[in-house]
Design a protein around this nucleic acid. Structure first.
Lengths: 123, 123
DNA sequence: TGCGAAACTGGCCGGGTGGCCAGTCCTTAT
DNA sequence: ATAAGGACTGGCCACCCGGCCAGTTTCGCA
């Protein structure tokens, strides 16, 4: 019955590696001031550790490609991107084409999805 | 010089609320077996707590819209989606149109990005 | 029993998209 | 000097996308 005004910090684990999840659960279980969420309970924060399987190969994108990619993720059309970056629509298409190649995507939607998955961009 | 075979679990914090980040950093700092990552160091896991800003209002999507949305996120064209779901391209466009409305998106790329942000789909 | 919502389909059309070709300029590496 | 790669631009063209119109069927709910 402490008079502590702040309740425990409730955490959830989203960890692919079972062994790591176990170690963390054990370590955190004995820390006063925080605890793991009960089933169904909504946590205030989440500990994530995804399999870094496909991560290692980070695609080498040029700065300009990253510029275009970011605007693509915002749903911008080639025309809008061209205006934003002060370049021609043709140049935008050129960069988009390069992105489709490097990201192994079939279209701009696929490119954004792939980039997000690989952590190249943040949605 | 302990003979412990397992090194510390290295964590990073990605927390919007500075106060919460502080509390967590303090709590975790005194736990043996884990520590926060040094600047530039790559962590094995990340503790995330995003502002639950737009989260509360979960968009009401029909099952069919979810089907279409999932395939859109895979970069599928309307034609491919139509074949997958055994419906006509017109029907696909119909559902895509509904998705653009509900997700307040300007195009399919934007729709997928919005859906991913709102947790409607997982990339 | 009627009414709305969801799912489905068609035609039409302007504008967007992506692929292909070719070319220039500039900077860095060999 | 001589590549080599990045950024940039143009034209051309088949195809896709999204918006508009209109229509049918099926289901559950009042």
């Amino acid at each position: 019955m402490s008079a502590d005004t702040t309740p425990d910090i409730v955490l959830t684990l989203e960890i692919d590696d079972p062994a790591l999840a176990d170690r963390l659960a054990t370590l955190l279980g004995s820390v006063a001031g925080l605890r793991l969420a009960a089933p169904g309970e909504t946590a205030i924060a989440t500990i994530v550790a995804r399999d870094p399987r496909v991560m290692p190969e980070d695609i080498a994108l040029t700065q300009r490609e990253l510029d275009v990619l970011a605007l693509m993720a915002e749903g911008a059309s080639n025309k809008m991107i061209a205006r934003q970056l002060n370049i021609s629509v043709h140049t935008v298409k050129f960069h988009v084409g390069s992105l489709l190649d490097k990201l192994d995507a079939t279209g701009r939607t696929d490119a954004v999805a792939h980039a997000a998955r690989r952590g190249v961009i943040e949605l």
